[in-house]
Amino acid sequence: MGDIVGFAVAWIVTSALGELAVSAVRRGSIYYYTASNQALDGESAFGFILVMLVPVVAFIVVMLVYNMIRFRARGKEILRSQAQFYTNKVFVTVWIAISVVVNLLFYLHPTASALEQMFNGEEARYNRQDLIVNVTARQWQWLFNYPQYNITQAADANGNSVMFLPADRTIKFVLRSYDPFHTYDASAGVIHGFWVPAFGLKQDIIPGETRYLYIHTNKITSYDVNPMVRVQCTEVCGPGHPFMEAPVHVVSAADFQKWIASQQKQQQS
């Protein structure tokens, strides 16, 4: 009995400390830096799972450590343990029940609930005001195209691809993998991965398919503010893979219009 109490105290104390640590981390930022609603959703799912798992992890870790210290053999002689039992119905039943319940819980929340939110976000009816950005991945370069503004290839003064987005808007990324500059076989492409770390989502880009990713930007920021605001290829696509990145700028609606105008001018010249 004493051992059970001793263990329980250690477990509760450890869990409490663990929860404190997790909530400290949650108050900071698990994802380091976020710039979209989707990233916030992901972060809160992450944090929720951590909160729920702390007691579970603490249970096992404390068990391992407690057993190791409390029930260690003293002395050189090899002696059989005094206590011998083959099972304990209560313990086994509770264990199984808890692991089933925790799993179902995680499945309902955050897995299913957060997914539903994500799917809903993708439903067209919410997205009539979307800014559409066509993203084309070629080996090895990102190309951004704004069909609503007739910008075929957004680029900075040096001709490098760059992406500007208005803040507090839903963006619909249209993802395709092909090579518009390829001379004889534009479809000869590989899989790429579209990831803006600060947006909290990524999507693979499959040759021959068109895929969509929806993001709602929630603050003004840019690659210069935090390097996590960049497009980064996440699926290995050949030797140029590490170099497939492009800076992102999330700007105010007015600045976005200015940028559009300058891009349109740049294109005409």
């Binding site: 959703d41 992901g42 799972i49 995680f106 990831w195 990524k202």
Partner: peptide, 18 residues
């Protein structure tokens, strides 16, 4: 534990391939 996190699709979409 990190596997449970990865099994959650919303989280997975952030940390996969990283």
């Amino acid at each position: 534990v990190t596997g449970v996190l990865l099994a959650d699709p919303v989280v997975n979409l952030q940390v996969h391939d990283s």
